[in-house]
Design a protein around this nucleic acid. Sequence first.
DNA 1: GTTGAAATCTCTTAGCA
DNA 2: TGCTAAGAGATTTCAAC
Lengths: 152, 152
Amino acid sequence: MQIDEVDQRIIASLVADARSSYAEIGSRVSLSAPAVKRRVDRLRAAGVIRGFTTVIDPAAVGWNTEAFVELFCTGRTTPTQITLATRRHPEVVAAYTVSGEADALVHLRAADISHLEQALERLRAEPFVTSSRSMIVLSRLVDSPTVVPAPS
Amino acid sequence: MQIDEVDQRIIASLVADARSSYAEIGSRVSLSAPAVKRRVDRLRAAGVIRGFTTVIDPAAVGWNTEAFVELFCTGRTTPTQITLATRRHPEVVAAYTVSGEADALVHLRAADISHLEQALERLRAEPFVTSSRSMIVLSRLVDSPTVVPAPS
DNA sequence: GTTGAAATCTCTTAGCA
DNA sequence: TGCTAAGAGATTTCAAC
């Protein structure tokens, strides 16, 4: 799909605040509210905009502990297998297949250390996991939403 | 701050769709629109709700390459130093201090491999970095927004 | 302290030039 | 694309629980 500079500025505006009105975005990109809505609808339909969500302080809802786990898998493990397995665990925030020593990197979020330990145990019990290496997050230094490059 | 089950359900609703109306959320939690707004305002003021954002397909805006980089730092490196250094690089999506072998884990997003290479070079040129280990993301398997535990 | 109802104002959204 | 207009939603005020 073709995205012009106006689309990018609309996206940037929506990333900064998903609840701003079309009129407000329009005034920022010099477009009328209906024109903005039409573009947003088009971007949603095309899958460029996946959805609108809310950024929550994890600690406030009681999920204080985070970790990244590198998974080492058996030779014939497919990405699909890892996807299905990791999706089953509610503690999994994100999972990736990666190049390098490990085969996959899993981002976990749990209430506390003991909850994290349980989740880790469950994850490691998956049949294709041969070993794992965990990094517990001590502090989050930077956390930006998806960066939209400014039109050059 | 005190969060009751109604707040949690409002949060869950906003995480699922940040643009839904207060009336819509209200019908789901059996509250009037003004009551929902008051609670949302309170949650925002308390920092539980950090903001509303839009989930973008990174590929659609031309950022196709992702990597995680483990940083090994000199003995007297403070988290603040790492924060300031990583914030300077627009490719840094997130950064954490971690337990384990590495001192920090940095999540990078770039347009392509050569862009990623440049970003990595810049990052490794930071004076406190002694070495690094990169994992290039081959595919994103799972990517959930912040999970809000259902009230039990 | 909270809530819901009503009034006013803004925004959304469809139709049309 | 912008404009207009009708409907829907947001938000403030106020009274009641």
